[in-house]
Amino acid sequence: MSYHFQSSGIRLPDFSRGKRKTQVGSTKHFTGGLVLGDREGVRFGTESHLEKNAVLLLAYRATTLDLIEQVRFAWYDEDGEYFDHYIDAVQWRTDGKVVGYAVRPMGRVSDAYLRKLARIKEQAIAQCFLDDFRLFSEKDVCPVELHNATLFHSVRRSDDFADPVAQDVCKNVCGIATVGALVDKTGLEGMGFRAVVRLIRSGHIQMLRNEKIERSTEIIRTRVA
Results as ranks from 00 to 15, higher is better:
V144Y: 00
G107K: 04
K185N: 07
L208S: 08
K28T: 15
L208G: 03
Y3D: 14
T63W: 01
K28A: 11
L135M: 13
A126E: 12
C170E: 12
S7C: 01
R209A: 10
V224T: 15
I120C: 07
G187Y: 05
D140S: 12
A54Q: 07
D111R: 15
D38V: 14
I125A: 02
L65C: 02
Q167E: 15
N210R: 14
D159Y: 02
A112H: 06
A126Q: 09
R20L: 14
I205P: 00
V71N: 01
R17W: 01
F5G: 08
V224Y: 00
N53K: 13
A112K: 14
L57A: 05
F15M: 10
G33V: 14
C174T: 09
H85E: 03
K21G: 09
P13D: 13
Y101D: 00
A124W: 03
F5S: 13
Y60T: 04
E122G: 01
G107H: 03
L114V: 14
D163S: 11
D131A: 06
V196F: 03
W92E: 11
K139R: 13
N53Y: 03
R93T: 04
L199Q: 12
G41E: 08
L151P: 06
D140Y: 04
V224M: 09
S202L: 09
V197P: 02
K121P: 01
F83R: 14
E47R: 00
Y113L: 15
Y113N: 06
N53F: 01
R93W: 02
F73G: 09
H204E: 05
Q127V: 02
Y3Q: 09
R115H: 01
H4D: 09
I200P: 04
T150E: 14
R215I: 02
K21I: 04
V99K: 01
Y113S: 12
A166Y: 07
K97H: 06
R209G: 00
D95K: 09
S48C: 08
Q167S: 13
Y101T: 03
G80H: 05
T22Q: 11
E189R: 15
M1F: 02
V169P: 01
E81L: 08
K139H: 10
R43F: 10
H147K: 05
R134T: 03
K116H: 09
A74D: 09
E214W: 03
I87V: 10
T27W: 07
R93I: 00
D88T: 05
R108E: 09
S2L: 04
D38P: 11
S48D: 07
D66S: 11
Y86Q: 08
M207A: 07
R72K: 15
F161L: 12
V173K: 00
H147L: 05
D111G: 09
G192M: 07
F15H: 06
R157C: 04
H153T: 14
G37S: 07
G107I: 10
A225S: 11
L199R: 10
I125Y: 00
G96T: 02
V196D: 06
G32S: 05
L50T: 10
V109Q: 01
G96A: 05
K21V: 04
P105W: 07
R156K: 12
L135H: 11
V144G: 03
R20T: 07
D140I: 11
Q6N: 08
L34I: 13
K19H: 12
